[in-house]
């Protein structure tokens, strides 16, 4: 176990390992996305009040769930980078930030598109939506902060602190609909007890959430590989690898 974690910190080893993972993850992700989308959009029944417009849930909820989980990935990588000074943790943190930002933006935009016909407004400053907007700014802040520094070690440290401080926002987003009166409805999927969403609609939703987790892992890995190639463009191991191909 420990040797595995140690090996993950070595760029040549990680590059080879992630190559194998990507090879498997890519078809799995595409398969899950296709099956989940077809099931959710074509097979699942319409909602008794919203009709077909509820189907945006199959993009909105997975994007939002993975945007929250992805933040913990980024913050955890930041903590590892601060404590153990592992370069690979910096690379992970940097790779997760833009992916998380895009997922958060997708959740906000699909929410607005759904909100217009359902609520009667694109946007309302309620606790859930505002805290989600803060999450977008935190992700973008990490991206921007890294670019603002000339010294990349200092940049990684500043980004790690920012992402760690931002973790407080995640439980706030998650619980905002329960703690305060908000326009956004409470969670339909419940970990304990019966979900408030019918199982015929829930199963494709769970499949799409799994698909988005895979998509997140896949894009972060590809991002990391691209960064490794750039960082080690003059390294021996990479040039040998390129010559082999």
């Amino acid at each position: 176990m420990w040797t595995f974690i140690h090996k993950m910190g070595s760029p040549p080893w990680f590059f080879r390992f992630s190559g194998v993972v990507v090879q498997w993850l890519l078809p799995i992700t595409i398969g899950l996305l296709l099956v989940g989308a077809a099931w959710g959009l074509l097979v699942a029944p319409p909602d008794f009040r919203q009709g077909n417009s509820y189907r945006i849930i199959y993009i909105h909820v997975p994007a939002a769930v993975v945007a929250l989980a992805g933040y913990y990935v980024m913050a955890f990588a930041g903590a590892v980078s601060l404590i153990w000074r592992i370069k690979m943790a910096d690379v992970t943190m940097r790779a997760a930030a833009p992916v998380g930002a895009v997922l958060t933006a997708v959740a906000l935009i699909t929410g607005a598109i759904w909100g217009k016909p359902t609520w009667g407004t694109w946007w309302v400053w309620d606790a859930r939506i505002t805290s989600m907007l803060i999450l977008l700014f935190l992700y973008l802040g990490v991206v921007a902060l890294f670019e603002a520094y000339e010294n990349k070690t200092a940049a990684a440290r500043a980004c790690a602190v920012l992402s760690l401080v931002g973790t407080v926002n995640i439980p706030i987003i998650y619980k905002s609909v329960d703690w305060w009166y908000s326009l956004h409805q409470p969670a339909s999927i419940k970990f304990t007890g019966e979900s408030a969403i019918d199982s015929s609609m829930l199963y494709p939703l769970l499949l799409m959430i799994a698909a988005f987790y895979c998509l997140f892992a896949l894009t972060v890995l590809l991002n990391m590989r691209a960064e490794l190639v750039w960082n080690h463009r003059e390294a021996n191991w990479l040039q040998q690898l390129v010559r082999k191909v």
């Binding site: 029944p45 008794f48 359902t118």
Partner: peptide
């Protein structure tokens, strides 16, 4: 302004 507040219940019309 009047906004509709949707609840968390999703189900097919038959249910």
């Amino acid at each position: 302004q009047v906004l509709a507040k949707h609840d968390e219940n999703y189900m097919p019309p038959e249910v």
